[in-house]
């Protein structure tokens, strides 16, 4: 089964059946434990991969050595035959036969190790992708919860008193109104600038509430008192 299907199964398992939004916040706590367990089994899988790869390397060395010997003995046979030394050529050929069957046997085992390493790596990669996917799910739920808890102090969209969000429609209206007010102020500033100059402009901007009356001696003292 592909890793996304596994993720789907896990998320559904930790959600409320009636709520098709998959994981709910209670499920997250249990899921976190599962992620920790998955991390542990992944460490074990990595260890067994290391063992298998060590064996694979040992076999690959052996296959290389055998191949080299086979070439060497083959060359020797050619030279012995050319020199007319049939008896020694025969003895060497017997040794070569042994080496060749040894190579065949080892090659089959090496092939199976190569295959096993590929499979183990694929399994580890898939489970790592799955774990990271579930972790991201946990991060989203937990960060949303944390923002919810912090909302008493900030003006975020969370109501702070229960698990629901403030009305998005209402928030949008407030933001739009705020943006409009800012635009209006800027527009007023432009208009006033067009019809005034110098100190007159500043007075008009202050009167229109576009800039504050911050430069009075009293306000400067206040600033330093803070």
């Amino acid at each position: 089964m592909g890793f996304l299907n596994n993720v789907l199964k896990t998320m559904k398992g930790y959600g409320n059946e009636a709520n098709d939004a998959f994981v709910d916040s209670q499920g997250i706590r249990i899921m976190e434990q599962e992620i920790r367990d998955a991390e542990k089994s992944q460490r074990q899988a990595n260890e067994s991969l290391t063992d298998v790869m060590a064996e694979q390397k040992r076999l690959a060395r052996k296959v290389n050595d055998l191949t080299a010997s086979i070439t060497e003995y083959g060359d020797a046979i050619s030279k012995l035959l050319a020199a007319g030394n049939e008896t020694l050529a025969m003895e060497t050929a017997e040794k070569l036969a042994e080496l060749e069957s040894d190579l065949d046997g080892n090659q089959v085992v090496l092939d199976s190790y190569n295959e096993q390493v590929k499979e183990l790596k694929a399994i580890i990669k898939d489970s790592s992708k799955q774990r990271d996917a579930l972790k991201r799910e946990v991060l989203i739920v937990k960060s949303t919860e944390a923002a919810q808890k912090a909302s008493v102090a900030t003006a975020t969209q969370f109501s702070g008193t229960n698990s629901s969000l403030r009305s998005a429609s209402a928030s949008m209206e407030r933001i739009k109104a705020k943006q409009q007010k800012r635009k209006d102020k800027m527009k007023a500033a432009r208009e006033l600038a067009a019809e005034s100059n110098g100190g007159e402009l500043k007075n008009k901007l202050t009167a229109a509430g576009v800039i504050g009356n911050q430069n009075s001696a009293a306000s400067i003292l206040d600033r330093y008192r803070k």
């Binding site: 990271d132 949303t144 969209q157 629901s164 969000l165 998005a168």
Partner: peptide, 28 residues
Amino acid sequence: EDIEEFAILATASETQLLFNVALFDRSQ
């Protein structure tokens, strides 16, 4: 800017940075 009611929450997993903005819940 002006849209403090919709905060971006940034988190990091081992492989990814996530930037998420909660918009509304199903009850709405």
